[in-house]
Design a protein around this nucleic acid. Structure first.
Length: 346
DNA sequence: AAGCCGTGGAG
DNA sequence: TCTCCAAGGCT
């Protein structure tokens, strides 16, 4: 007892009610479509729009992106999050230029060789850029297919994962480009995760209804504590260090991060910080004002941090184990900074 | 396979 | 204030 195909009802609705004004909707440029797909991973459309505009203006082609420094790429990604996407996009552009003759692959297997391009992203680009019949399975398509076919259990269970991909392939018509956009619009506009607007849905009837996947209880996020050292030189520069490409804020510029065991004040914390600054960075800062506690939530932990101001009179690069670089206040806006630091400096 | 990787809006 | 979650992919 299989329900009728989704496409027959979905496509007319899409023509009428779809989001046809999105900046990447009209183009068939593989580079532009690729960039949109990467930025949209785990990220809302409205958040992406201004980043997409700026990024495309500065890096309008594979070649432009490949020629850029990673530092500048990250600077334009700053605030968008999941910075591995930017590092991967930079590497992918170089791979397209060097290995694929400057063209996004037309073959799914080759597209999957690009770092940061998984099955759904590759399929989305091949469908929209080249008109191929390729099925996507993003959060929207997942939710729509899950409900339409009345699935039960967890969305992410291996069984449902296989089943959802199978359904995605099965439902995707030859006009995959329009269908892929349409099912994403349906998920974003009507088939919402919390309150599905079934009364307006073109799939009402054959759809099994707004059945919900069984929620896997998410483990509580642990809280970590830290203080950030805001070091200023006598000529007003701020000292920043480049974070390693792995881990939180990979490749971005940040303040020295001293991990604390807890939120409780330690009597000798100032002395500890001075010793740490000397051993790690070769500095002898004069500590100043504490900022108030702030909370920043990452994917898998909360960070409670406070900034402490500090002045240094003598500064030389390379005196400690870890390098710090001075930046004048007017330079900071152009840097690849994580959001909390962009706020701090603004 | 499950943990890792950001951020901001919605409720 | 807090949790949830959004055009996922990598290790």
């Amino acid at each position: 007892m299989t329900p009728p195909s989704i496409a027959s009802r979905l496509l007319p609705w899409y023509q009428q009610s779809g989001r046809h004004d999105l900046p990447w909707r009209q183009s068939r440029d593989p580079y532009l479509l690729y960039l949109a797909e990467i930025m949209l991973q785990q990220t809302r459309v409205e958040t992406v729009k201004p980043y997409f505009r700026r990024f495309l203006a500065r890096f309008p082609s594979w070649q432009a992106l490949a020629d850029a420094s990673l530092d500048e790429v990250l600077a334009l990604w700053s605030g968008l999050g999941y910075y591995a996407r930017a590092r991967n996009a930079h590497a992918a552009a170089r791979m397209v230029v060097d290995r694929f003759q400057g063209e996004f692959p037309t073959d799914l297997v080759q597209a999957l060789e690009l770092p940061g391009v998984g099955r759904s992203t590759a399929a989305a680009v091949l469908a929209s850029a080249y008109g191929q019949r390729q099925a996507i399975l993003d959060a929207n398509a997942r939710r729509v297919l899950f409900r339409y076919h009345g699935l039960t259990g967890s969305m992410r269970s291996p069984q449902n994962e296989r089943l959802l991909w199978q359904l995605a392939e099965q439902e995707t018509p030859a006009m995959a480009h329009d269908y892929n956009q349409a099912i994403q619009d349906l998920g974003a506009l009507l088939c919402l995760s919390r309150k599905a607007r079934c009364d307006e849905c073109p799939l009402l009837g054959p759809c099994a209804g707004p059945c919900e996947p069984t929620q896997i209880p998410q483990p509580e996020k642990p809280v970590r504590y830290a203080c950030f050292l805001l070091l200023r030189t006598e000529d007003g520069c701020v000292l920043l260090e480049k974070r390693p490409n792995r881990g939180i804020w990979g490749g971005l510029w940040a303040l020295p991060w001293y991990a604390l065991a807890g939120a409780n004040e330690v009597p000798e914390l100032a002395e500890t910080l001075r010793n740490w600054a000397r051993e790690e960075y070769g500095l002898r800062p004069q500590l100043g004002e504490w900022h108030s506690w702030q909370r920043h939530t990452f994917t898998h932990f909360h960070l409670e941090y406070r900034v402490i101001e500090a002045d240094i009179s003598v500064y030389g690069v390379g005196e400690g184990r870890r390098a710090l670089f001075p930046f004048a206040p007017e330079q900071l806006a152009q840097l690849a900074l994580p959001s909390p630091l962009r706020r701090l400096f603004s």
